[in-house]
């Protein structure tokens, strides 16, 4: 188990190194004029050249990757130009170990930006997660218990309907009608949990629902299927035969059997979301990592794009390792190797 964990971690790190090279080549080697945005609209070709040099985009991709890798391992200072750093020390930006680069669009280190935006994405992800898990499990069990009846069909049908409409459409519908037109809830806006937990919740409701609906349908149907499957298993039938009440059987046996796979699976989904939900954050103007990455793309902010890609990748890689280990712990039949 320990050896396996070590092996997985090492291969995860290797994967990230390979990804960083691939990502660098995808963006740095291919982008024709990332400096265009920084230079502004009435930019002359000479100015464009100066800007390109100032942003360091004129160097070969491998050199830029080398600087990135070195910065990640040992830390780095910006601006890149040593002459400028010496002449104007007040301009130097320290980017300590783990440095993901410097965003010229925001004039800040990528790490600082992500650190600032991550709480927003995490809040959104967690509140959506709570909604979709709670809703998914409750509605899924209900549907299974009333299999084939109207309530079953209604739950499955409505959740499919909510899933089928595009996320941005649902989001805009909620924003435009529920918040602006009817004023049922406050305009969605992020507040710090520590500042005011109530505002934190009320500002998150609509975006969290929007995001939860993407997943909820899947979880309802999954729960429903698991419950039906489990209820037909021998040991449940035995329990029923023993004379245990339906409630006990469902509460004790079925639920436990159902929750295990659900929790592990949802862990993976949550990991994917921690790094931001681009569409939901864009619709509701939540300045999380998702919106940040979107802005980075709009501005051709290559260091920021690469930094976010690698961070999100590491989330997924870590989550996969954790889930695989969890599987092994929960289900002894799974052999690691």
């Amino acid at each position: 188990m320990f050896a396996y964990t070590i092996r997985r971690v090492i291969s995860g790190i290797l994967l990230l190194v390979v990804m960083s090279v691939v990502t660098f080549y995808l963006f740095y080697a291919s982008s024709s004029t990332p400096e265009r945005f920084a230079c502004g609209p009435k930019c002359t070709p000479t100015q464009l050249d100066t800007t390109k040099r100032a942003l360091g985009y004129d160097e070969p991709t491998i050199v830029q990757w080398g600087k990135f890798a070195k910065g990640f391992v040992a830390g780095r200072e910006f601006p890149d130009d040593e002459k400028l750093r010496k002449a104007a020390p007040e301009q130097v930006v320290e980017c300590p170990r783990g440095c993901l680069g410097y965003s010229y669009g925001y004039s800040k280190p990528v790490n600082t930006l992500i650190k600032d935006k991550l709480p927003i994405s995490v809040s959104l992800a967690i509140s959506a997660f709570v909604i979709w898990i709670a809703g998914g499990v409750l509605l899924g069990i209900t549907a299974a218990l009333f299999k084939g009846r109207l309530i079953d069909k209604a739950i499955v049908g409505l959740s499919l309907l909510a899933f089928a409409f595009p996320t941005f459409f649902i989001g805009l519908l909620l924003l435009k009608f529920v918040a602006i037109r009817w004023g049922i809830v406050e305009l969605p806006k992020y507040s710090d949990f520590t500042d005011n937990p109530f505002l934190w919740v009320s500002g998150l409701i609509l975006p969290a629902i929007t995001l939860a609906l993407v997943y909820m349908a899947g979880y309802i149907r999954m729960t429903r299927a698991f419950v039906l499957e489990t209820m037909s298993e021998d040991y449940i039938r035995t329990a029923r035969a023993k004379g245990l009440t339906r409630r006990v059987v469902i509460g004790k046996h079925t639920l436990r059997a159902v929750l295990t796979p659900l929790v592990t699976l949802s862990g993976l989904d949550l990991a994917g979301l921690l790094g931001g939900a681009i569409i939901t954050e864009t619709v509701f103007n939540f300045n999380g990592v998702g919106k940040l990455s979107f802005t980075a793309v709009q501005r051709y902010d290559l260091p920021l794009i690469v930094g976010i890609v690698l961070l999100l990748a590491s989330f997924v890689i870590v989550a996969n390792i954790v889930v695989d280990l969890l599987y092994a712990v929960i289900d002894p039949r799974v052999r690691l190797g």
Partner: peptide
């Protein structure tokens, strides 16, 4: 349901066969 609304990232696990494979 494949998570088609582009908000998910990571494994797309809503397909039975893959779950089956995971659990062996």
């Amino acid at each position: 349901l494949t998570a088609s609304n582009l908000e998910s990232h990571g494994d797309d696990h809503f397909v039975d066969a893959e779950e089956d494979e995971r659990s062996g």
